[in-house]
Design a binder for these strands. Structure first.
Lengths: 141, 141
DNA sequence: CTTAAAGTCTCTAGTGACTAGAGGTTCAAG
DNA sequence: CTTGAACCTCTAGTCACTAGAGACTTTAAG
């Protein structure tokens, strides 16, 4: 078994685009790998694990600074566990806030679209509502 | 009643920051107002109406190209109504997609946080799950 | 061994919708 | 007339990438 992956191989294995890998290295999330004599990157299994960690955390919506903090915790002591929990909980709150906002948007959009009875009124409620916040029910920001 | 607003007054009336107003003008969403001899902007009620339309549409999550299209519809003919409806519906689908994705994230975050029983296992499930996608249930991207 | 194709390198610029700041000018009140 | 708030333009920064240019390296076929 060959020990090294090129950036393209790593890209396929981790389902992460090549420029994104380089970008993570640039930002310090993925350690710089060794290079060939011709200056091309050669990665190890460890890099693959790290990259998968990053991608998984991204898929869950963590931002890069949070991921960097999570990486520094290795989970072997109680403090690490508490801190990981705090970061995850904070992010969960964030996600829930976003959901709430989007649901408010959704409700208002539905009301707007369904309330539009052009056939009868010959006025488009969608454009009316947009023009006048007073015409819509909720107090979105 | 004075006919004109300064950019600061408009800002307060429309609850929109001053640089944002200038930026909308730059992007062609808000018509360029007249200027004083000293080159300061002077807005009319019409500008206020337009700016409120933009802000309301933004609050509902429409992006600027969509808002520009909506502005060009005045709602007085059937075609306008159909088009406004199409744009709104498309955006609603978008919003619902985002909600679905966030809910998937939420579920997985909750599972991760609640499944973390550090007291017993002395391993932090949060970090474990992030390191290995296989440990989590869903097929988020 | 040569050659061609595919892969890789660095660097810059663009995305969306603003926001922040520098450095200078104008307005309105007293 | 002075002062200070508001205004002007322009540039750069945000986030997490993505796209592209132009040059170099690696790999597989012949």
């Amino acid at each position: 078994m060959s020990e090294f992956y090129s950036i393209g191989q790593l890209s396929k294995l981790a389902e992460c685009k090549v420029p994104t890998i380089r970008w993570y290295e640039d930002k310090g999330l993925l350690p710089a790998p060794t290079r060939t004599e011709g200056n091309q990157r050669r990665y190890t299994k460890r890099h693959l694990t790290t990259l998968r960690f990053i991608r998984h955390a991204r898929a869950l919506g963590f931002d890069l600074p949070a991921i960097e903090k999570l990486q520094q915790l290795n989970g072997c002591c109680y403090g690490d566990h508490i801190e990981a929990d705090r970061i995850a909980q904070e992010h969960l709150d964030d996600v829930r806030n976003k959901i709430a906002k989007l649901k408010a948007m959704e409700a208002e959009l539905v009301a707007m679209i369904e309330g539009c009875d052009y056939e009868h009124s010959h006025k488009c409620r969608i454009l009316d509502v947009l023009a006048d916040h007073g015409l819509c029910g909720s107090d979105h920001q």
